[in-house]
Amino acid sequence: MAQAVPAEQKWWSGGKSPFNVEYGKLMMWYFLMSDAFTFGAFLISYGTIRFSSNSWPDPNEVFQSFPGLGSGLPLMFVSLMTFILIISSVTMVLAVQAGHAMDKKAVVRNLILTIIGGIAFLSCQAWEWTHMFHEGAWWGSNPFLNIDGTKASTNFTNFFFTITGFHGFHVFSGVIINIIMLIMTLNDVFERRGHYLMIEKAGLYWHFVDLVWVFVFTVFYLV
């Protein structure tokens, strides 16, 4: 049987993980795939409805306000939100890397930054939702006209609030997870365990939230 093939690592022969990862990380990846299909279904539904409509509102007319600066500034606010999320993703990577190096201080610092980023993003979203609500937009109510000046169905706002809401819910749970990770780190749970792999999984989730935003940002605000 296993006589003369020592050169190559036999990943699949049993007794070890074929991917060299612990089961928790594997589960997290596959959970994220599953979640990707949830978001995918939402976004594809959005696309389908948009393709079934004769016209659609123009994002540059809908999203053009900035707190404190008034309106007429298309894409500005969402750019801010996007960069907040990207930066919080970066700090999360740094937290994960610090975890690998068993550098507790750096883990704590970067986790706190990530949490702040997450909260900042949620606040931006809250402002944007409130602003749109005051303009008369909500589930089942759409004050915006189509790009060609015709009356729009309510589905633009329906999808907007549903999908950004679902994304916001993910950001929110990501923040909660990160706060739990922070508390565990401060209590030296990972130090005692001898590794910070849990942070890595939280990180995967957080990056996924960022990933989804890339798609949400594009389909709602850009195209």
């Binding site: 007794g15 993980s17 074929p18 594997l26 596959y30």
Partner: peptide
């Protein structure tokens, strides 16, 4: 899925 991938005994 993760049990089948990760937890097989030696030789399996």
């Amino acid at each position: 899925i993760s049990t089948i991938l990760n937890m097989r005994t030696k030789g399996m």
